[in-house]
Amino acid sequence: MNDMHLCVVNITFLGKGPYTFSVGKGECVGLTGKSGIGKTQLFRAITDLIPAEGEILLDGRASASFSPTQWRSKVTMVPADSSWWYDRAGDHFPVKHKTSLLRESCMLLGLEPEVLDWQVSRLSTGERQRLALLRALQNNPTVLLLDEPSSGLDAYHTGLMEKYIGNYLRQNNPAVVWVSHDPEQLKRVASREFRMEQHRLYQIK
């Protein structure tokens, strides 16, 4: 446990749990479980968007000892349906400089580099999904919770995204939890796999 980056210890919320698991630095674990079991709520509990009993540790330090804004900059999730509130896509990115880097990332994900100047209303589901990932990565999170990140993408772009996250993992060493309903995808991206049930979470590989 001690070399684990993110440790979730006996957390319960909304009548679910207790759940215990941990993810190492630079590791990607898969998370499955039938629809509605509460995978998204688990992510919301870990990012402290909903109250939960139990303990969540980042390198041995409890979440309560971080300020909420600090915690969510380090431990963030990319929700399955992304939200946008400004007209222009690029305005949603917290870091305004380094746009050339951002445009490069866009291309790696199969997005046109001008996509940042587009109106949000013009973006497709898949484009929004990829931009939401890039937006979340701008804070350099050390824990990344991905909620079906490629659900709106075709096989080709799914491949690009898996590759992109794989590279990010090697370069920045975050801990990643990847929710997917596609067992093949989890086989490709995750080193271990957990299954979530109403009152327990267990490793299946």
């Binding site: 804004t69 349906d81 939200s83 701008q138 804070n139």
Partner: peptide, 22 residues
């Protein structure tokens, strides 16, 4: 109605004041 937006902004590390400013 705009819960998703507010929570997304919180997830980006914004405080509640920033996230709900608009």
């Amino acid at each position: 109605g705009r819960r998703g937006e507010v929570e997304q902004r919180l997830l980006l590390g914004q405080s509640w004041q920033e996230a709900s400013s608009d």
